[in-house]
Write a protein that binds this DNA or RNA. Structure first.
Length: 564
RNA sequence: GUCCCCGUAGUUCAACGGAUAGAACGACUCCCUUCUAAGGAGUAGAUCGAGGUUCGAUUCCUCGCGGGGACACCA
């Protein structure tokens, strides 16, 4: 049985009724009221019409309700408040929802809106040779979740990492390794080397000149010793990052290095210069963004070297060569690059006119700061991604002393990552994140582990049911739906909205509310009780909740353990 | 200086122009002889300020105040 699209059904009946009555309306809302007392759907259409026709909203509502035929799945319709029309869904609707979820749990929450899309998704993009700041995890976590949302809509997603392996940051690290006698095969040595290099650079003088010389030498690639340090450091850093990505649940299809993007960058810009996309100015090649309300940016500096801007054009060209049939291109970075990407995207559209028929989007993520105060890489008091996860893991290990699982270390990882991801994904993408370590470490209340625990709880209940030979069935249900049933069916709308607004936080809110309602249900009702005539239905409902949590957590990139 | 984002309980976050602004943490009460207490039930507590648009504004517009970011050869 397929899940009925009751939203469209109600909306189309309202439109028909409006036509019949001769009312014309541009748009009206049809939403789930915050309070279930106001029904499962509510529309403001009467308020909109009344305003135009100078009638009272309740009179209009009355006329509309009278003009509505019986609607399948709708039990009753009421007029309330200032003139809202409230729709109450029928018992059979909720039963059929539970039924369809457990019949095809893998497709629950998915849709086919992007079946023909091929999406190039660039995220994470770390600086090699520099410790991973917690903020670097933000892009990975958000990018992974958005990637999964696109896949939930049927798109083919290509995950792309664009690490920075050349430039001043790398030069500082290489210089620092030499100065500190560090071993480039050891990640901690790379961290202290970068700090040393950065400090030296900022204090200026001879050391700054030395670092710049290292930078030039690395670009030229002529100094074997420097090249070797750089290569080893990059290998170390990459190994660490790929370990971290696998812990976080990301695996990339392609890795495009900044040094690689630099190769086509110059020729791409120079040929576009000839066709008038770029202009020369003070010896540099620039893109005049002012013409379209942006600002001017340099693509080739006065020495003819590509800037980050040009390298992003090169990066784009490489992506396009790998995946010529792409339809959408998304880049996730920190929000400080917002204006920058407006210019780069405008330049891409001028240089590669075909891109205009496709979609290129920049998703800016917020800045992450700690409630405990500012971090600064200069002072060396940054919280690295690894150390934060390590702290969460230690805490989780402590908390999991009396767990039911046999692999405690593995569970601690899953919980630590879940806690971190929840903290990042719970708020609107793009707003600054004030990371509350205490809150993340608490594992109580609204948190990743809360959702994971609820999932484990549903699994445990289902096991219990199985052990007393109770099978799920929706054949016989209590007269009125449980409160949680009035929420459960909304899941597909939530995933769809999360995708269209690049906002996984809608899923976080939904799952948290769902888990809360399930836990309340669990506290109130005995579920797997052989003497209860409704036990099979409660078990089916539990299974549907389990499936919803599993699907939702998957989209967030959070693992759903069976035992905790 | 110009432009962009943000300002909601003590704290960290929600609220697609709608009905009584929701949670969580922290504080204070209760609840494990039960299918997992990483849980449940309850109490107290908030829209930065001033105008405007609207039947209706946390949401849209203007101004002010406060925080963050971006504005030519860095990434």
């Amino acid at each position: 049985m397929t899940f009925p699209d009751v939203t469209s059904l109600i909306a189309s009946h309202i439109r028909k009724a409006l036509d019949g009555l001769g009312f014309s309306v541009d748009s009206f809302s049809l939403e789930h009221p915050a309070d279930v007392a106001f029904g499962d759907y509510a529309t403001n259409v009467a308020l909109v019409v009344a305003h135009r026709t100078q009638q009272t909203p309740r009179a209009v509502a009355d006329a509309i309700v009278r003009a509505l035929p019986p609607i399948e799945w709708v039990d009753r319709i009421e007029i309330a408040g200032p003139g809202f029309i409230n729709f109450y869904l029928s018992r059979s609707f909720f039963v059929s929802c539970v039924d369809s979820v457990i019949a095809d749990r893998g497709s629950w929450g998915r849709n086919g809106l992007e079946l023909n899309e091929e999406v190039l998704f660039e995220y994470t993009s770390p600086n090699l040779f520099k410790p991973l700041h917690v903020g670097n995890l933000v892009g990975n976590i958000i990018g992974e979740s958005l990637s999964r949302l696109h896949e939930f809509s049927g798109a083919t997603v290509r995950r792309i990492n664009y690490p920075s392996d050349i430039g001043l940051t790398v030069a500082k690290g290489v210089w620092g390794i030499m100065k500190t006698n560090g071993n480039p095969d050891v990640i901690d040595d790379l961290g202290s080397a970068y700090i040393a290099g950065n400090n030296a650079y900022e204090s200026g003088g001879d050391e700054k000149n030395e670092i710049e010389a290292v930078n030039r030498a690395l670009y030229a690639g002529t100094d074997e010793r420097l090249n070797a340090i750089r290569d080893r450091g990059i290998q170390t850093s990459r190994a660490r990052i790929s370990q971290l990505c696998s812990l976080l649940g990301t695996s990339f299809d392609k890795e495009i290095f900044e040094s690689q993007a630099a190769i086509p960058a110059v020729t791409v810009v120079q040929s576009a210069l000839a066709s008038g996309v770029f202009e020369k100015s003070d010896g540099a090649v620039v893109y005049h963004g002012e013409r379209i309300g942006l600002h001017t940016r340099v693509f080739l500096n006065s020495q003819g070297l590509p800037t980050y801007e040009a390298k992003d054009l090169g990066n784009f060209k490489i992506k396009q060569d790998y995946y010529p049939d792409w339809t959408r291109c998304v880049v996730v970075t920190g929000s400080e690059q917002k204006e920058y990407f407006k210019v780069v995207i405008a330049a891409i559209c001028d240089v590669f006119p075909d891109a205009r028929n496709k979609s290129i989007e920049h998703v800016p993520t917020g800045f992450l700061t700690l409630t405990t105060g500012k971090m600064s890489s200069r002072k060396g008091n940054v919280l690295t991604g690894e150390s934060l996860i390590e702290q969460l893991r230690t805490e989780a290990l402590e908390r999991a002393k009396d767990t039911r699982t046999d692999n405690v270390a593995r569970l601690a990882d899953v919980i630590a990552v879940g806690a971190l991801k929840y903290q990042i994904l719970r708020q609107k993408v793009g707003t600054n994140i004030i990371f509350d370590k205490q809150q993340a470490l608490s594992f109580e209340g609204d948190s990743g582990p809360y959702l994971q625990y609820t999932h484990a709880r549903t699994v445990s209940v289902l096991e219990k049911a199985d052990s007393v030979h109770l099978a799920p069935s929706t054949a016989h249900s209590p007269e009125h739906p449980y409160p949680i049933e009035r929420l459960l069916y909304q899941f597909p709308e939530v995933t769809q909205r999360a995708l269209s607004e690049n906002s996984p936080h809608y899923i976080v809110s939904f799952l948290s509310e769902l888990a809360g309602m399930y836990n309340a249900f669990y506290a109130l009702e005995r579920i797997a009780d052989v003497r209860d005539e409704y036990a099979p239905y409660k078990i089916a409902l539990t299974d549907a909740v389990r499936a919803t949590l599993a699907q939702g957590l998957y989209v967030l990139g959070i693992e759903a353990p069976d035992k905790m």
